[in-house]
Design a binder for these strands. Structure first.
Lengths: 145, 145
DNA sequence: TATTGTTATACTCTATAACTATA
DNA sequence: TATAGTTATAGAGTATAACAATA
Protein backbone atom coordinates (compact mmCIF):
# COMPACT_ATOMS: atom_id res chain seq x y z
CA UNK A 1 0.00 0.00 0.00
CA UNK A 2 1.75 3.12 -1.26
CA UNK A 3 2.11 5.12 1.92
CA UNK A 4 2.31 8.43 0.15
CA UNK A 5 3.30 10.48 3.20
CA UNK A 6 6.08 8.21 4.47
CA UNK A 7 8.68 10.06 2.47
CA UNK A 8 7.72 13.35 4.11
CA UNK A 9 7.94 11.85 7.58
CA UNK A 10 11.34 10.37 6.83
CA UNK A 11 12.55 13.74 5.54
CA UNK A 12 11.15 15.46 8.60
CA UNK A 13 12.93 13.00 10.89
CA UNK A 14 16.18 13.38 8.99
CA UNK A 15 15.99 17.15 9.22
CA UNK A 16 15.48 17.07 12.99
CA UNK A 17 18.18 14.44 13.39
CA UNK A 18 20.60 16.57 11.41
CA UNK A 19 19.78 19.57 13.50
CA UNK A 20 20.18 17.69 16.75
CA UNK A 21 23.53 16.38 15.59
CA UNK A 22 24.53 19.98 14.91
CA UNK A 23 23.27 21.46 18.17
CA UNK A 24 23.94 18.54 20.51
CA UNK A 25 27.65 19.14 20.50
CA UNK A 26 27.26 22.70 21.84
CA UNK A 27 24.74 21.65 24.43
CA UNK A 28 27.01 18.93 25.81
CA UNK A 29 30.01 21.26 25.74
CA UNK A 30 28.19 23.36 28.36
CA UNK A 31 27.53 20.29 30.49
CA UNK A 32 23.82 20.17 29.72
CA UNK A 33 21.75 17.20 28.64
CA UNK A 34 19.07 17.38 26.00
CA UNK A 35 16.32 17.41 28.64
CA UNK A 36 18.09 20.13 30.62
CA UNK A 37 18.55 22.28 27.54
CA UNK A 38 14.86 21.77 26.77
CA UNK A 39 14.00 23.24 30.16
CA UNK A 40 16.45 26.14 29.84
CA UNK A 41 15.15 26.95 26.38
CA UNK A 42 11.53 26.71 27.53
CA UNK A 43 12.14 28.98 30.54
CA UNK A 44 14.23 31.46 28.54
CA UNK A 45 12.53 34.82 28.01
CA UNK A 46 9.63 33.97 30.31
CA UNK A 47 8.61 34.98 33.84
CA UNK A 48 8.79 31.34 34.84
CA UNK A 49 6.12 28.65 35.08
CA UNK A 50 4.91 25.65 37.09
CA UNK A 51 6.07 22.01 36.80
CA UNK A 52 2.75 21.23 35.20
CA UNK A 53 3.20 23.81 32.47
CA UNK A 54 6.87 22.87 31.93
CA UNK A 55 5.88 19.22 31.63
CA UNK A 56 3.24 19.99 29.04
CA UNK A 57 5.63 22.07 26.94
CA UNK A 58 8.57 19.64 27.05
CA UNK A 59 6.72 16.30 27.16
CA UNK A 60 8.69 15.38 30.30
CA UNK A 61 6.54 13.61 32.89
CA UNK A 62 6.23 15.00 36.42
CA UNK A 63 8.28 12.29 38.10
CA UNK A 64 11.18 12.87 35.73
CA UNK A 65 10.79 16.62 35.95
CA UNK A 66 11.48 16.64 39.69
CA UNK A 67 14.92 15.16 39.01
CA UNK A 68 15.77 17.32 36.03
CA UNK A 69 14.83 20.54 37.85
CA UNK A 70 16.74 19.36 40.92
CA UNK A 71 19.95 18.98 38.90
CA UNK A 72 19.45 22.38 37.27
CA UNK A 73 18.86 23.87 40.72
CA UNK A 74 22.09 22.29 42.01
CA UNK A 75 23.92 23.89 39.12
CA UNK A 76 22.39 27.21 40.13
CA UNK A 77 20.65 27.61 36.79
CA UNK A 78 17.04 27.70 38.00
CA UNK A 79 15.28 28.67 41.23
CA UNK A 80 11.91 27.70 42.67
CA UNK A 81 9.34 29.70 44.59
CA UNK A 82 6.04 28.54 46.06
CA UNK A 83 3.09 29.85 44.16
CA UNK A 84 0.98 32.24 46.23
CA UNK A 85 -2.28 31.28 44.54
CA UNK A 86 -1.91 27.51 44.90
CA UNK A 87 0.33 26.28 47.67
CA UNK A 88 0.81 22.89 45.99
CA UNK A 89 2.46 24.57 43.03
CA UNK A 90 5.89 26.10 42.34
CA UNK A 91 7.16 28.77 40.05
CA UNK A 92 10.40 27.78 38.34
CA UNK A 93 12.47 30.46 36.66
CA UNK A 94 16.00 30.96 35.38
CA UNK A 95 18.52 32.48 37.78
CA UNK A 96 20.79 35.22 36.41
CA UNK A 97 23.34 32.44 35.82
CA UNK A 98 20.69 30.38 34.05
CA UNK A 99 19.77 33.36 31.95
CA UNK A 100 23.42 33.80 30.97
CA UNK A 101 23.53 30.11 30.02
CA UNK A 102 20.42 30.59 27.92
CA UNK A 103 21.96 33.60 26.19
CA UNK A 104 25.28 31.78 25.80
CA UNK A 105 24.20 28.39 24.53
CA UNK A 106 21.11 29.30 22.58
CA UNK A 107 22.83 31.78 20.25
CA UNK A 108 25.65 29.28 19.66
CA UNK A 109 23.25 26.58 18.60
CA UNK A 110 21.48 29.25 16.70
CA UNK A 111 24.50 30.65 14.94
CA UNK A 112 25.35 27.18 13.64
CA UNK A 113 21.83 27.25 12.33
CA UNK A 114 22.38 30.67 10.85
CA UNK A 115 25.26 29.42 8.77
CA UNK A 116 23.10 26.58 7.57
CA UNK A 117 20.43 28.95 6.37
CA UNK A 118 22.83 31.61 5.13
CA UNK A 119 21.75 31.41 1.52
CA UNK A 120 18.03 31.06 2.19
CA UNK A 121 16.09 33.91 0.59
CA UNK A 122 13.10 35.63 2.13
CA UNK A 123 10.90 33.62 -0.22
CA UNK A 124 12.54 30.37 0.85
CA UNK A 125 11.78 31.13 4.47
CA UNK A 126 8.21 32.12 3.73
CA UNK A 127 7.62 28.89 1.78
CA UNK A 128 9.21 26.73 4.48
CA UNK A 129 7.19 28.35 7.24
CA UNK A 130 3.95 28.03 5.36
CA UNK A 131 4.56 24.36 4.63
CA UNK A 132 5.58 23.54 8.18
CA UNK A 133 2.67 25.48 9.65
CA UNK A 134 0.28 23.41 7.59
CA UNK A 135 2.04 20.22 8.62
CA UNK A 136 1.91 21.20 12.27
CA UNK A 137 -1.79 21.82 12.07
CA UNK A 138 -2.67 18.45 10.55
CA UNK A 139 -0.49 16.70 13.13
CA UNK A 140 -2.08 18.62 15.99
CA UNK A 141 -5.51 17.76 14.58
CA UNK A 142 -4.51 14.09 14.60
CA UNK A 143 -3.59 14.25 18.27
CA UNK A 144 -7.14 15.09 19.27
CA UNK A 145 -8.66 11.94 17.85
CA UNK B 1 19.30 40.23 16.03
CA UNK B 2 16.38 39.00 13.96
CA UNK B 3 17.12 35.31 13.70
CA UNK B 4 15.06 34.84 10.61
CA UNK B 5 15.21 31.04 10.59
CA UNK B 6 14.29 30.45 14.25
CA UNK B 7 10.61 30.24 13.42
CA UNK B 8 11.26 27.44 10.92
CA UNK B 9 13.30 25.47 13.45
CA UNK B 10 10.64 25.86 16.08
CA UNK B 11 8.00 24.67 13.62
CA UNK B 12 10.17 21.74 12.62
CA UNK B 13 10.67 20.77 16.26
CA UNK B 14 6.97 21.08 17.00
CA UNK B 15 6.11 18.88 14.02
CA UNK B 16 8.49 16.14 15.14
CA UNK B 17 7.30 16.45 18.74
CA UNK B 18 3.71 16.12 17.63
CA UNK B 19 4.54 13.08 15.59
CA UNK B 20 6.46 11.44 18.39
CA UNK B 21 3.57 12.06 20.76
CA UNK B 22 1.35 10.33 18.23
CA UNK B 23 3.60 7.33 17.57
CA UNK B 24 5.15 6.90 21.01
CA UNK B 25 1.99 5.48 22.46
CA UNK B 26 1.87 2.62 19.96
CA UNK B 27 5.56 1.87 20.33
CA UNK B 28 5.30 1.57 24.12
CA UNK B 29 2.14 -0.51 23.86
CA UNK B 30 4.28 -3.16 22.14
CA UNK B 31 6.90 -3.01 24.90
CA UNK B 32 9.50 -1.25 22.78
CA UNK B 33 11.57 1.79 23.66
CA UNK B 34 12.26 4.59 21.23
CA UNK B 35 15.78 3.30 20.58
CA UNK B 36 14.52 -0.25 20.05
CA UNK B 37 11.87 0.91 17.62
CA UNK B 38 14.54 2.87 15.78
CA UNK B 39 16.51 -0.34 15.28
CA UNK B 40 13.46 -2.38 14.23
CA UNK B 41 12.43 0.32 11.76
CA UNK B 42 15.97 0.59 10.39
CA UNK B 43 16.31 -3.18 9.93
CA UNK B 44 12.81 -3.53 8.45
CA UNK B 45 12.77 -4.40 4.75
CA UNK B 46 16.55 -4.92 4.63
CA UNK B 47 18.84 -7.95 4.44
CA UNK B 48 20.41 -6.86 7.71
CA UNK B 49 23.52 -4.80 8.45
CA UNK B 50 26.47 -4.40 10.80
CA UNK B 51 26.58 -2.60 14.17
CA UNK B 52 28.64 0.08 12.49
CA UNK B 53 26.03 0.74 9.83
CA UNK B 54 23.18 0.56 12.34
CA UNK B 55 24.98 3.05 14.56
CA UNK B 56 25.47 5.47 11.71
CA UNK B 57 21.84 5.33 10.67
CA UNK B 58 20.34 5.66 14.14
CA UNK B 59 22.95 7.91 15.81
CA UNK B 60 23.30 5.33 18.61
CA UNK B 61 26.92 4.88 19.70
CA UNK B 62 28.51 1.43 19.60
CA UNK B 63 28.66 0.95 23.37
CA UNK B 64 24.95 1.64 23.68
CA UNK B 65 24.16 -0.42 20.60
CA UNK B 66 25.55 -3.59 22.19
CA UNK B 67 22.95 -3.29 24.97
CA UNK B 68 20.04 -2.35 22.76
CA UNK B 69 20.69 -5.24 20.34
CA UNK B 70 21.15 -7.61 23.29
CA UNK B 71 17.70 -6.76 24.63
CA UNK B 72 16.13 -7.13 21.20
CA UNK B 73 17.88 -10.50 20.85
CA UNK B 74 16.53 -11.63 24.23
CA UNK B 75 13.05 -10.72 23.03
CA UNK B 76 13.69 -12.85 19.95
CA UNK B 77 13.22 -9.91 17.59
CA UNK B 78 16.69 -9.84 15.99
CA UNK B 79 19.44 -12.39 15.36
CA UNK B 80 23.17 -12.00 14.79
CA UNK B 81 25.54 -13.84 12.50
CA UNK B 82 29.29 -13.43 12.12
CA UNK B 83 30.24 -11.76 8.88
CA UNK B 84 32.20 -14.07 6.61
CA UNK B 85 34.24 -11.27 5.08
CA UNK B 86 35.35 -9.65 8.33
CA UNK B 87 35.38 -11.83 11.41
CA UNK B 88 35.23 -8.81 13.72
CA UNK B 89 31.86 -7.85 12.30
CA UNK B 90 28.29 -9.12 12.70
CA UNK B 91 25.23 -9.10 10.57
CA UNK B 92 22.10 -8.19 12.50
CA UNK B 93 18.72 -8.92 10.98
CA UNK B 94 15.09 -9.19 12.04
CA UNK B 95 13.82 -12.65 12.99
CA UNK B 96 10.41 -13.71 11.64
CA UNK B 97 9.02 -12.51 14.96
CA UNK B 98 10.89 -9.23 14.56
CA UNK B 99 9.55 -8.88 11.07
CA UNK B 100 6.01 -9.40 12.35
CA UNK B 101 6.66 -6.72 14.98
CA UNK B 102 7.88 -4.40 12.23
CA UNK B 103 4.79 -5.07 10.14
CA UNK B 104 2.55 -4.76 13.20
CA UNK B 105 3.87 -1.62 14.84
CA UNK B 106 5.02 0.31 11.82
CA UNK B 107 1.68 0.30 10.01
CA UNK B 108 -0.04 1.29 13.23
CA UNK B 109 2.20 4.28 13.69
CA UNK B 110 1.81 4.84 10.02
CA UNK B 111 -1.96 4.59 9.89
CA UNK B 112 -2.19 7.24 12.58
CA UNK B 113 -0.05 9.24 10.23
CA UNK B 114 -2.23 8.36 7.30
CA UNK B 115 -5.26 9.84 9.02
CA UNK B 116 -3.27 12.95 9.70
CA UNK B 117 -2.44 13.37 6.02
CA UNK B 118 -5.79 12.18 4.77
CA UNK B 119 -6.72 15.44 3.11
CA UNK B 120 -3.28 16.21 1.69
CA UNK B 121 -3.39 16.50 -2.08
CA UNK B 122 -0.71 15.24 -4.44
CA UNK B 123 0.46 18.84 -4.81
CA UNK B 124 0.66 19.27 -1.03
CA UNK B 125 2.91 16.24 -0.78
CA UNK B 126 5.11 17.36 -3.65
CA UNK B 127 5.53 20.80 -2.09
CA UNK B 128 6.28 19.38 1.34
CA UNK B 129 8.85 16.94 -0.01
CA UNK B 130 10.59 19.57 -2.07
CA UNK B 131 10.80 21.95 0.87
CA UNK B 132 12.05 19.31 3.27
CA UNK B 133 14.57 17.98 0.77
CA UNK B 134 16.04 21.45 0.43
CA UNK B 135 16.11 21.86 4.18
CA UNK B 136 17.80 18.50 4.63
CA UNK B 137 20.50 19.44 2.16
CA UNK B 138 21.41 22.73 3.82
CA UNK B 139 21.52 21.03 7.21
CA UNK B 140 23.71 18.22 5.88
CA UNK B 141 25.98 20.83 4.31
CA UNK B 142 26.25 22.53 7.70
CA UNK B 143 27.38 19.31 9.34
CA UNK B 144 30.50 19.15 7.20
CA UNK B 145 31.90 22.44 8.43
C1' DT C 1 -12.44 13.62 45.37
C1' DA C 2 -9.11 15.62 42.23
C1' DT C 3 -4.71 17.79 41.46
C1' DT C 4 0.41 19.31 42.26
C1' DG C 5 4.40 17.73 43.07
C1' DT C 6 7.52 14.00 45.68
C1' DT C 7 9.44 9.59 46.36
C1' DA C 8 10.65 4.87 45.18
C1' DT C 9 11.53 1.24 41.88
C1' DA C 10 13.33 -0.84 38.09
C1' DC C 11 14.92 -0.37 33.64
C1' DT C 12 16.93 1.82 29.62
C1' DC C 13 19.76 5.01 27.35
C1' DT C 14 23.99 7.80 27.21
C1' DA C 15 29.01 9.14 26.88
C1' DT C 16 33.37 7.62 27.70
C1' DA C 17 37.24 4.89 27.90
C1' DA C 18 39.83 0.67 28.34
C1' DC C 19 39.80 -3.70 26.31
C1' DT C 20 39.75 -8.10 22.69
C1' DA C 21 40.08 -9.91 18.40
C1' DT C 22 40.67 -9.31 14.15
C1' DA C 23 42.43 -6.55 9.95
C1' DT D 1 48.36 0.68 13.70
C1' DA D 2 43.55 0.89 12.89
C1' DT D 3 38.89 -0.89 13.19
C1' DA D 4 34.56 -3.77 14.95
C1' DG D 5 32.51 -4.78 18.70
C1' DT D 6 32.57 -5.69 24.10
C1' DT D 7 32.76 -4.47 28.80
C1' DA D 8 32.72 -1.39 32.73
C1' DT D 9 31.34 2.79 34.93
C1' DA D 10 28.74 6.52 36.33
C1' DG D 11 25.12 9.41 35.39
C1' DA D 12 20.75 10.65 33.43
C1' DG D 13 16.16 9.98 31.50
C1' DT D 14 11.85 7.00 31.45
C1' DA D 15 7.28 4.89 32.97
C1' DT D 16 4.74 3.75 36.72
C1' DA D 17 2.59 3.78 40.98
C1' DA D 18 1.98 4.96 45.79
C1' DC D 19 2.11 8.99 48.55
C1' DA D 20 1.58 13.90 51.08
C1' DA D 21 -0.23 18.32 50.93
C1' DT D 22 -3.49 21.23 49.18
C1' DA D 23 -7.61 22.40 46.48
Amino acid sequence: MGERYLKSIRLLAECMQGFERLSGEHVRKHGLTHAQFDIIATLGNTEGMSYKELGEKTLITKGTLTGVIERLEQKGLVERERSLDDKRSWFIRLTPKGDRMFRDVFPQVVSEGSAVFAHFTENDFAALEQTLSGLKQVIAAGSDS
